[in-house]
Simulated assay, not measured.
Amino acid sequence: MWDTTSDYGVQPPLTEEAITEAEEDLDVTLPAALLDLLRTRNGGPIAAARSAFPTSRPTSWAADHVPFDHLMGIGDRNRVLSLLDSPYLTREWELPAELVLLSGDGHQWIALDYRAGGRHAEPSVTWFDAEFGRELALAPDFGSFLAGLTAPDDLSARP
C-alpha cells in the first residue's frame, strides 16, 4: 500500500489516544479500515500500484480515474497536512462541512463523506473538485475504496 521510499507526510505512530482525540475533535467515528491502515503507517505516499481509483465518468483529472497518491494521517507534525486539518480545509475550499479529507491538493480532494448517514455512521468516499464545484461518489465505504485502488497505467490499458 505504502511507498516506503519517502516519509513525506508521515505522522508519528498512531496511538489509541490520538484516535480518540481525533474523533472527538472532528466529531466523527472514523472507519475501522482507515484506522487499521493508519496503524501500519500514519499517512504518507501511496505506492504507484495503488495510486488510482477508477471512475465511471471523466473527471477534471482523467477520463477514467482519480489520483490517490498520498493519504493524510492523524497528527500535528509541523508543515504536514493531517485529517485534523479537515475543518479548516473544507471552509477554505468551500466544501461540505460533513467531510474528513483524506487526500488532495486543494483543487481536488478525496474525502470521507458523512452527509448521508451522519457523523457516526460508516461514511462513503467521494471525490470533490473544488475548482469546478463537482463531486463524484467513489465507494460506499473506505474498505471498498481500498479494494478498488489500482495503478493508473492499468486503467489506461482498459478497452
Score class of each variant (00 low, 15 high):
S51G: 13
G9R: 01
L95A: 03
H70W: 03
T20R: 12
G43D: 00
E24V: 15
A121M: 12
A111I: 05
G133C: 12
H70F: 07
R39I: 09
D64V: 04
S156W: 13
I74H: 00
I110D: 00
L34W: 00
S103W: 02
T59L: 07
R91K: 13
H107Y: 14
F142N: 01
Y8P: 10
A52I: 05
T15E: 04
P13N: 06
W2F: 14
T59E: 11
V100Q: 05
P140H: 15
R77F: 09
H65W: 10
V80M: 15
P87F: 02
W127V: 02
L81T: 14
L112R: 02
S86G: 10
G117P: 04
A32Q: 11
S144Q: 14
T40D: 12
V80Q: 15
F53E: 03
A139C: 08
G106H: 04
T55I: 03
R41Q: 05
L34V: 01
S124W: 00
E98F: 02
T126A: 11
L102C: 10
P152A: 12
Y88I: 13
T150C: 06
D36H: 07
E135S: 14
L112G: 03
F68V: 13
E98N: 13
R77A: 09
L155Q: 00
A97F: 06
G75I: 00
L26K: 03
G148K: 10
W109A: 01
Y8M: 13
